[in-house]
């Protein structure tokens, strides 16, 4: 595990993703440092605040659990939205904030617990349009990108 980590650090091109890549999570490698949450919030909101992060890591005993959009193929959140505020756009769920009334139907429909509301904003991961900051700042190799 640690040889991998050192290798990823020295190469530093780990996250050159594209819109066909998906993110994977290996709980065995996650240390619970929360750097993914911090990277997410600064990327999307220009400030550090884990509660604004679209990715959340929760510690249960010695295991870290992740809450984030899995970008699933059938995207039930979109089907659940009665206002047409969500759309599938090239591998990510696009949120039309103007149309969203924060009703929470999408949250109920999400199988991975990956959607939240904070500060009157619906938070769904957009994979940073192909080069996700959470993966970029994950040094343990718990978060990686791979081809879909």
């Amino acid at each position: 595990m640690h040889a991998d980590m050192a290798a990823s650090a020295s190469v530093d091109v780990l996250t050159q993703g594209n819109d066909r890549d998906i993110r994977t999570f290996n709980p065995e490698k996650c240390s619970g440092c929360r750097n993914c949450e911090l990277a997410c919030s600064i990327a999307h909101f220009g400030a550090f605040n884990p509660r604004r992060a679209r990715i959340q890591v929760l510690r249960q005993g010695c295991r870290e659990e992740i809450r984030v959009c899995n970008h699933c193929e059938d995207h039930p959140c979109i089907a659940a939205c009665k206002r047409g505020a969500l759309a599938w756009d090239d591998g990510e769920v696009f949120v039309d904030d103007a149309a969203c009334n924060l009703c929470g139907d999408c949250i109920a429909a999400c199988p991975s617990g990956g959607i939240r509301i904070f500060d009157e904003t619906l938070l769904i991961c957009d994979l940073c349009h192909g080069d996700p900051m959470c993966v970029k700042f994950c040094t343990t190799g718990a978060l990686t990108l791979k081809a879909r």
């Binding site: 919030s41 600064i42 909101f45 220009g46 400030a47 550090f48 605040n49 604004r52 904070f118 500060d119």
Partner: peptide, 8 residues
Amino acid sequence: RGSGDIPV
């Protein structure tokens, strides 16, 4: 519980 932002 802290829910505020820390900008840099």
